[in-house]
Each structure stands twice: as structure tokens, then as C-alpha cells.
């Protein structure tokens, strides 16, 4: 079981629950951390909204609103804003992908 996940210059310390990008410390809320952790565990894979809903929030209903998108965009604003190279991508009509590989 790794204690650290790395997606390019993004590093997630699972033990200390700390996230850094290019050495900069990023403050995340608990659910934002869980969301990022799940994406990082599936780095470079396309993750659907349903997967996020079930694995991160343990919800099994089908939101009619863009609530997941809002969570993603909030996370994106924290980990991608100000960096030249965006890591969190929206795959239209399918879901999201963390990583550029």
C-alpha cells in the first residue's frame, strides 16, 4: 500500500493528508482530498461521474444537477490554477481524467 501518490508534479501524502504541486502546499477540504485521492489512484484513466459518486461519496442515486462538475471545478481551481500544465481534464460526455499520459 503506497503512502504517497504522484501525478507528474502533484504529490499526495496519504499519511499526512498533504498535497503539494511543484513543491507548493495546497489546502484541501476532506472531500476534496478524497476526490483527488480517488482520481490519483486512477491516474491517466477516465473516471465517470457515477464512479466518483459511488466511490468518493458512497451515493447511489443519480443527481440531475451538475453537482459533480462543481466539485471537480473547485478541485481544479486549487490544483491547476496558476500552473502551465493542467492535470485534471474533463472528457465530455464521459467523465474526468487526472494526468496527461
Amino acid at each position: 500500500m503506497p503512502t504517497q501518490l504522484t501525478v507528474e508534479d502533484l504529490e499526495i501524502d496519504l499519511m499526512k493528508r498533504r498535497v503539494t504541486r511543484a513543491g507548493d502546499c495546497i489546502e484541501l477540504k476532506a472531500k476534496e482530498f478524497a476526490l483527488l485521492e480517488f482520481l490519483a489512484r486512477h491516474k491517466n484513466e477516465v473516471v465517470t461521474r457515477t464512479m466518483l459518486l459511488e466511490k468518493v461519496w458512497q451515493y447511489h442515486f443519480d443527481p440531475q444537477t451538475n453537482v459533480i462538475d462543481v466539485h471537480i471545478s473547485r478541485l481544479r481551481s486549487k490544483i491547476d490554477r496558476g500552473y502551465a500544465n493542467p492535470l485534471l481534464h474533463t472528457i465530455r460526455g464521459v467523465g474526468y481524467r487526472l494526468g496527461n499520459a
Binding site: K31, W57, Y59, T65, N66, V67, V70, H71, R74
Partner: peptide, 12 residues
């Protein structure tokens, strides 16, 4: 839990 889940989209 739901309020936590939805609060950001309400704010938006």
C-alpha cells in the same frame, strides 16, 4: 452529508 455534497453547487 447531502448539504456538504450540494453546498458548493448551491453557492455557484
Amino acid at each position: 452529508g447531502l448539504v456538504d455534497f450540494y453546498i458548493s453547487v448551491f453557492e455557484e
